[in-house]
Amino acid sequence: MPDRVSIRIDGELLHARLGQTILEAATAQGRFIPSLCHLKGLTPVGACRLCLVEVAGIGRLLPACTTPVQDGMAVTTRSDRLDRYRRMILELLFAERNHVCAVCVSNNHCELQALARRLGVTHVRFPYSFPKAGTDLSHRQFVLDQNRCILCTRCVRVCAEVEGAHVWDVAGRGIGSRLVCELNRAWADSRSCTGCGKCVQSCPTGALAMKGFAAEEMVKRTETITRLVEAKGVRA
């Protein structure tokens, strides 16, 4: 089997490595496919559905982050339908919790906010849920604000896969899903948290933040996570 394959992305012929996902292949060529749950270096989960693309000959939409490239694959990353669906998904996220961007620690540095701007979401047509979502301020250094959580599980994965602590997981189901620390403990009471802060740095929104950072101050350094994973990979 050839190591390299040729695929078409939006009509353009590109080369990709076998084993790469569509998202990796596209990103390597500088192409943009929106995503929120994906973070390079962590196991892709295909949960946010923003990276859905159309693949010729396949009836359903496929997540670019988990679908491996195949030789001769023709991928469409932009279409009227995909644009509409992506906007709707973003709107659903905004409607789900209380994203008060204006006063958020991650204002102007938030991936959700940036995607909304980029994809032209100017309002949320769905009624807001305005749920009661709490905060966990117990940790000395960090804060969990459920109001801003989009359940992308990057923190869950980075903690389990990179740090090896598995402090975070998702409890409940459906609309009642929420991030929990271990078996629903206060963060400060965690027995496995190493205080490494990788979860904070991988979080795309203001859900996980450093304590004491005021509005607009929380800039996440997701690329450090990716670099760390790559460095580990080299070591291994």
Binding site: A102, N107, N108, Q113, A114, A116, R117, R118, L119, T122
Partner: peptide, 9 residues
């Protein structure tokens, strides 16, 4: 057309 010109917050 406000796409890309405005943001929440």
């Amino acid at each position: 057309d406000l796409a890309g010109k405005v943001k929440f917050g």
